[in-house]
Computed example of a mutant assay.
Amino acid sequence: MSTEVNRAIVRRFIYAYNTRNLDLFNELVAPGYVDHTHGKKGIEEFRKLFELAFVAFPDWHEEIVDMIAEEDKVWVRVEATGTQTGEWKYMGGSLSPTGNKITMTMVFIWRIAGGKLAEGWEVDSDSDFLNKLGLMDYTEKGKEMFSGE
């Protein structure tokens, strides 16, 4: 596949995510998909992550900022926003709705094979995400160091 075709696949996947169109998963994600970030294997486990996210963050939206494609890989940087108005089930626990609005930058790397997402990696700051949800706070020293001044 050309890099332009691979870029189009990723754009379509993010569109499917933003429009909550999980029917497109079968078309865009390989059955043996490997999610290296969350340790999930197979399309159903990957799909379940999105179903849980849609409940917790029904307004979640990802805007593509940058995209780079080379050979069978596509890197995409997105600005993501969402409000946690539903229960968030994650890593064996759950969090009642906080009402917190989150804005964060995320980078995804996908390997494309046979016209579908075959492997994926996510690069973001879990600590920043958890901090914005109100689950984690910086220490006094951390607040001092990262105050932005």
Rank of each mutant, 00 (worst) to 15 (best):
T3L: 08
V5H: 15
A8N: 06
A8M: 07
A8H: 04
I9C: 12
I9E: 10
I9D: 10
R11W: 08
I14E: 04
I14P: 01
A16W: 14
L22K: 09
L22P: 10
L24K: 08
L24P: 05
L28W: 03
P31W: 00
Y33Q: 10
Y33F: 04
H38C: 14
I43N: 07
E45V: 06
E45T: 07
E45I: 08
K48I: 12
F50E: 01
L52K: 10
A53R: 09
A53H: 12
V55F: 06
V55W: 04
A56D: 03
P58N: 00
D59W: 03
H61I: 01
E63R: 14
V65W: 11
D66K: 07
I68Q: 00
A69F: 07
D72M: 07
K73N: 11
K73H: 12
V74C: 12
V74Q: 04
V76P: 01
T85C: 11
T85N: 11
E87A: 12
W88T: 04
M91D: 07
S94T: 13
G99Q: 05
R111Y: 00
G115Y: 07
L117M: 03
E119H: 01
G120N: 05
E122R: 08
S125Q: 06
D126C: 07
F129G: 05
N131G: 13
K132A: 13
L133M: 04
G134Y: 09
M136Y: 13
M136V: 13
K141G: 01
K141H: 06
M145Y: 06
F146E: 06
E149C: 04
